[in-house]
Amino acid sequence: MRVALIAESFLPQTNGVVHSVLRVLEHLQQRGDQAVVIAPADPAGVPMIVSGAPVITIPSLPLPIYPEVRVAGGPFAPVVAPLRDFAPDVVHLASPFLLGWRGVLAAQALDVPTVAVYQTDVPGMAARSGFRHAERLLWKRIRDIHTRATLTLAPSSASLTALGDHGIGRLRMWRRGVDSTRFRPELRDLDLRNQLAPNGERLVGFVGRLAAEKQLDDLAVLRDLPGVRLVIIGDGPERRRLATVLPEATFTGMLHGDDLARTVASLDVLVTPGESETFCQVVQEAMASGVPVVAPAAGGPLDLIDHSRTGWLYPPGELMIMRDRVRDLVGDDAKRDAFGRAARASVIDRGWRPICSELVGFYSEAVDLHAASVRRAAGD
């Protein structure tokens, strides 16, 4: 199969979209498929080849509110040429919005089927960043893209419902895998714990982008929990401000690979307060590490956390309940250990290989659906 991946975000950026695209490229290379990536250019440098796939960059501009994020809007013609040259069987649109809009139009012009992977709640992010007035317009863009796509893949039941409520059809569920070999309880590091909590405090952590939509101000209700040290893993535009909101917290900055896995495994509890998560990969990574999670009962965590067994869900906005759930786990070693073991067991079989094999099945389904629509059009 020949697959063109049009990625709204790509290396050197680090986020959930990039992570899943990289896993897909690895899988396609292992299968012997041919792939190409079309992604925004970045002055920090984009690799020319990833997992055997050439990377074609499209001129981009910094996003005004997050300058480190590059966006590639404009007419779709510059995307048509590389797609025509590659002649894909299917186009994979990774979290499409600006470049993805150009991609779906280019694929239509070339009569190529598309699989659009919904991964970022752009309207929700905008609303939580103070741009609620733009929410309806942003949903219109999402609708325009996904109604043109041959198939739309959503990562969670909440996302399926949201997309369906906005009139988007041909929906399928496609979750994300987790590397339970990299993320594992055995990486718990006592020296690191002593460094982060010299007085033996329990470590309550967050992992992710430090941005408004992550609602990290909510963690302030944990500041005065006795015997608790907050650890904030990640970086982003809110870091400087958050350092004043959470002055007792330890900010590690961005961590990758084994350093990230070791730090996650060394936590006692992970808290993800954001209510706009379409999936929330860090929940799976914490669970694979044997760390129970506390999250709002919204979005992706609803599917991932088995309430009262692998972690706790709390009603969105009910921060005192979130605080009580964290206090419950940090104050009960036996319960926390039991939750952690159950969490690990619940994700141990969610590897990327079967997840990506399922994706290839969706590629084939999109090809068949497109062929059938062409036949119907010819019959008409």
Rank of each mutant, 00 (worst) to 15 (best):
I38S: 02
A286I: 12
A35L: 13
R141F: 06
T14L: 15
V18A: 03
V21Q: 00
R336A: 11
L5Q: 05
H19I: 12
G52R: 03
A366W: 05
D303P: 12
R350N: 08
A72E: 08
P75A: 14
S60L: 11
L255D: 09
R375D: 12
R128W: 08
K214P: 02
T252D: 01
R376L: 15
G290H: 08
D324F: 06
P96N: 09
R341Y: 00
G290N: 06
E277M: 05
L304C: 08
D33G: 07
L153Q: 01
Y363K: 01
F86T: 03
A127P: 04
L219D: 10
S357Q: 13
L359C: 11
F251Q: 00
D332P: 08
M125T: 04
E135C: 14
E277V: 06
V207I: 13
Y314D: 10
P78I: 05
L160D: 03
D306E: 14
G73P: 11
Q284E: 14
V221G: 00
R148K: 13
G16R: 01
V104M: 09
V122M: 13
I6R: 07
R309S: 14
V207S: 14
P273I: 03
T150Q: 09
G340H: 05
M1T: 07
T161G: 01
L163N: 01
G45I: 11
G130R: 11
G205E: 09
A378F: 12
L28V: 02
H133R: 15
R175I: 15
L151G: 09
L267I: 12
G73W: 08
Q195A: 15
L171N: 07
F97R: 04
S346F: 02
A126P: 13
L313G: 05
L63W: 09
Q29A: 15
D218G: 01
L93R: 05
A265R: 04
Q29P: 00
A343N: 05
L196T: 10
A343I: 03
P247N: 07
M125E: 06
F10E: 05
E135F: 10
L28T: 00
A286F: 10
R309W: 00
L304W: 11
R141Y: 00
E358N: 03
V207H: 04
R128T: 12
R136C: 02
P292D: 03
P64A: 04
F339E: 02
P185A: 04
F279K: 01
V367D: 00
V18N: 08
R141E: 12
D85P: 00
P67S: 06
H92R: 07
R240C: 00
D165Y: 00
D42E: 06
V293F: 07
S364M: 14
